[in-house]
Design a protein around this nucleic acid. Structure first.
Lengths: 151, 151
DNA sequence: TCGGCTCTTTAGAATAGTTCTAATTATTGA
DNA sequence: TCAATAATTAGAACTATTCTAAAGAGCCGA
């Protein structure tokens, strides 16, 4: 409808992923995805909302949540839940875990060579894991952060 | 003050742990801890509240949150954050991770032989992890659950 | 033991993040 | 093109948690 919506080049791959999961392709979903791809800093729904509004001022918060949900369910975006804070969103679908800096609050992707290695052998009989998540908390190498603690 | 409060045998170890973390020992904190030790099913703050009220009908929700916070900060209880759901509390301080059943919603402790093995070598230079958390989601071996999926 | 300071408890209000609702609009398939 | 269905919108509602202010309890020094 709006120029800004048309301004984003439609992504056929995204279109397909949405459809195969039973969702429709919409300019809002494309735009939310573009925002996530554009700045990979693990934004909250709120931050996504602010960014998407620059291109689509009419978009509502409910739509942002709906779009994020559709993208997550379509497997093109991961939802990152750390502590009790607002959920964050991440378009990196490679095998990775998250490092949360206690000083600056930033979240970093940490690549994993392979699927997380919690040998099933250690799981009591009958437990069948679908997904294993690893998260770390600590200090990141950024200048502003490292001044807060020794070494 | 109430009989029920006195009825719980005061735990010297708990007393010490609280004091060394700068907290005072109170009947409420003892009772909250007793509830967690009594039924290790990873209750939410709400569930703890209901259970503690049986022994201390006067207790308030704010106090339960305060007690849980003091216990967590004293290192005698772990707070378990899974998905976006209410936080859960766990008095198992051994090295373990959590398995969340997608069918019945129960949370199981899975013992780990040693600290989680995400070799620092894989972390980019400068990242200093303080804690590493692992959580799993899948199907547990309970009868009611296993009927929902093959094998 | 008394006085006073601080921490804790309490009830209820406030907040944050998210989900729901109902009306409107867009997309899709026949 | 038309009808059916899904998505969007604004705003209300909801849930888990935190905050607030007043009252009560624990603790330390004189």
């Amino acid at each position: 409808m709006s120029d800004s919506a048309k301004a984003t080049q439609p992504d056929q791959a995204l279109n397909d992923r949405l459809h195969t999961s039973g969702f429709r392709f919409t300019p809002q979903r494309q735009q939310v995805y573009n925002v996530l791809i554009g700045t990979r800093d693990h934004p909250t729904a709120d931050q996504v909302f602010i960014r998407v509004k620059q291109a689509m001022p009419e978009i509502s918060m409910a739509t942002v949540y709906n779009c994020l949900d559709a993208l997550v369910k379509s497997g093109v975006v991961r939802q990152v839940n750390l502590d009790r804070a607002a959920a964050r969103f991440c378009p990196n679908m490679t095998e990775h875990c998250h490092f949360h800096c206690s000083d600056c609050g930033k979240i970093f992707d940490i690549d994993l060579d392979a699927k997380p290695t919690v040998p099933e052998a250690r799981l009591p009989r009958g437990f069948k894991p679908d997904q294993i998540e690893i998260s770390m908390r600590g200090h990141c190498p950024d200048r502003g952060c490292s001044t807060h603690h020794k070494n």
